[in-house]
């Protein structure tokens, strides 16, 4: 069985103690989205400002919850600030893949078989997760995956609203 040191890494506790980009942004111009984990009552609010070029110029995080949901949202905010919406979406996919959630596998957009996927993905730079790698240990605690992905799902909602996919 995995130990607590796999879960509560120092960088996670640091983001939990001192969350980055904590607060609110004025809406509009910012877009606001809320996410809930009905299981434990955790709540994340994500605000993003997206400019004409499709760049996320500012991010703010509100809400409350456990160390994993809050630190994950904090790291996410630091990682996507200044990124383009497209890069942020790629980061969401890469993070969820690390959490063993592969959204393309079920449903998907029906545009191609799985065989085509690696080629397409291979054309792009691999996404660098940086500090977010610290959350990799969460996979060993399946109940907590929902905590780690709460902020990311909420970010996706905000991105969909601010910059609808064409």
């Amino acid at each position: 069985m995995p130990g607590l040191e796999d879960l509560y890494r120092e960088v996670i506790l640091d983001h939990y103690r001192s969350p980055r980009n904590r607060g609110e942004l004025a809406t509009p111009p910012a877009t606001r989205a809320e996410g809930f984990n009905p299981l434990c009552g955790d709540e994340i609010v994500v605000y993003i400002d997206v400019d004409d070029q499709g760049v996320i110029t500012d991010v703010a995080i509100g809400g409350q919850g456990c160390s994993i949901s809050q630190s994950s949202a904090s790291m996410m905010s630091a990682a996507v600030k200044g990124q383009s919406v497209d890069d942020a979406r790629r980061l969401v996919s890469a993070f969820k893949a690390m959490m063993s959630i592969h959204e393309g596998e079920i449903g998907g957009d029906g545009s191609g078989s799985n065989d085509d996927a690696p080629t397409e993905a291979g054309d792009k730079e691999p996404v660098r997760l940086g500090d977010l790698e610290a959350l990799r240990g969460v996979v060993k605690f399946p109940v907590r995956i929902k905590c780690a992905t709460l902020g990311w799902n909420t970010l996706t909602q905000a991105l969909d609203e601010a910059a609808p996919r064409v």
């Binding site: 130990g3 607590l4 879960l7 509560y8 434990c40 955790d42 919850g65 456990c66 160390s67 994993i68 605690f141 907590r144 905590c147």
Partner: peptide, 12 residues
């Protein structure tokens, strides 16, 4: 300490 974290530590 968030209850979710308390329960996790106790589980160990």
């Amino acid at each position: 300490v968030h209850p979710h974290d308390v329960a996790q530590v106790l589980d160990q």
